[in-house]
Simulated scan of single mutants.
Amino acid sequence: MLTALNLLPGLLMMAVAVIAAGYWYWKKKSKVIYFAAGALFWVVAIAIKVIMDLTISQPLYAWLGAALPVDAAVLATGLYLGLRTGILENGVIYLGTLYSKLKNMSFDDAVAVGIGFGGIEALILGALSLLTVITILSQPTLYLLMPYSSQQQFEPLFMFLPVIERIFTLFCHVFATVLTIYAVKLADLKWLGIAFVFKTLLDGLLLPFEHYLSYLGTYQFFPIEAFVVIMGCIALAGVYWFGKKYGGATAAPEAGNPNPGH
């Protein structure tokens, strides 16, 4: 049964963004403009995705479903979703950095942009979760009308999974953002390519996982979130390695120097 305890996941998802940004601002003294730039990049990328969903995506899904066997259609749709995320999210950051003064930022500021990018997503998803629970609490009959699989997601066993997802997805956003920014700073598209592949895998595999694990019902979320956690751990290790190799605390004008002399 839905209770006031179900308000916590939404609040905690929002707290992920606030704590991450607050900690980095306090620890590294990155200016608010860098967090704001990351948030703006996310808004632009999502806006383009929404436009695609309102125009070409739905006809594409229908065509794939009609033209291909089920398994092939699922894989093709997952590939489309992954490529779309890889191209748009990294592409917006790359172009925004390339054609602005952001390319002069330090490594710490690049991380701030990534926190802004992932943080605004966590804030909005957390707010939507909070609004959903408040609406259902105010109209209990809505809960009774939901399918059992949806009701299960509000049980203690499942309800904090979105919070875990936001934490590790934030790491993924920071990693891909830093790589993309340094593709500009180092004039090396290799890093953009790695960011593209990483984001494509992260988003592109989710739909196939959901399809092939659907027999587990609501329990499918555990292996799916385990995948996100693994990707987040890879991202966190990648950010740490990249910081050691390409700038760390180096001043902004020297941040693109791959041998800063630490």
Rank of each mutant, 00 (worst) to 15 (best):
A122D: 02
Y23P: 06
F196H: 02
I93M: 12
A37L: 11
V133L: 01
Y23W: 15
G118D: 01
M231N: 09
G38D: 10
E165Y: 12
L179H: 12
I46N: 04
T200F: 06
Y148K: 14
A122L: 02
Y61G: 07
D53F: 07
L75D: 06
G10T: 05
Y34L: 15
V228Y: 13
L125P: 04
F227K: 13
A237S: 10
L205V: 14
L88V: 05
D71L: 09
N257L: 12
L81M: 14
L128Q: 12
L95F: 12
L179T: 06
L236V: 08
D109Q: 15
R84P: 05
L137I: 01
D188M: 03
I194D: 02
L5W: 14
G193N: 03
G96S: 06
V163A: 08
W191F: 13
I136G: 01
F107G: 02
G256D: 06
F154N: 11
A37F: 13
L12T: 04
A21I: 13
I19Q: 08
V163G: 10
R166D: 09
F175V: 10
M146L: 15
A76C: 07
I136R: 02
F158G: 02
L137H: 03
L189N: 08
F221G: 09
D53C: 02
F171V: 00
F158D: 00
P162R: 03
S100R: 00
G22H: 08
W42M: 14
G261H: 01
Y34M: 14
T3Y: 00
V92Q: 01
F41V: 09
V16I: 10
V18Y: 09
W191K: 11
L123Q: 07
G82P: 03
I93F: 04
A112Q: 14
I181W: 04
K49V: 12
F154S: 09
I46Q: 08
E254Q: 13
A21L: 13
G91T: 01
L40H: 10
V197N: 05
A17S: 15
A67R: 08
F221S: 13
I87C: 04
P258T: 11
I120P: 06
Y34S: 15
V163L: 14
G116H: 04
T3I: 01
V228S: 11
T77W: 06
I120N: 01
G238F: 07
K199D: 11
L179N: 09
A110V: 00
Q220K: 15
A235Y: 00
W191I: 07
L161W: 03
I120H: 08
K28M: 15
P208S: 10
W24Y: 07
V43K: 02
L207P: 00
K28D: 07
L157M: 13
Y215E: 05
T250M: 07
M159C: 09
G204Y: 01
S138R: 05
Y94P: 02
E225L: 08
A39S: 15
G86I: 11
L144A: 14
V32D: 10
H173I: 03
M52I: 13
W63T: 09
G217S: 03
A4T: 13
I136F: 00
T55C: 12
G114I: 08
Q153E: 09
V18Q: 05
N259F: 14
P59H: 03
G22F: 04
L40C: 08
V43G: 10
Y143G: 00
M13E: 11
T218R: 06
L54E: 12
V92C: 03
E155A: 13
T200M: 12
P208G: 11
A249M: 03
A72G: 07
T218Y: 06
A39E: 00
N6V: 01
P147H: 12
L236H: 00
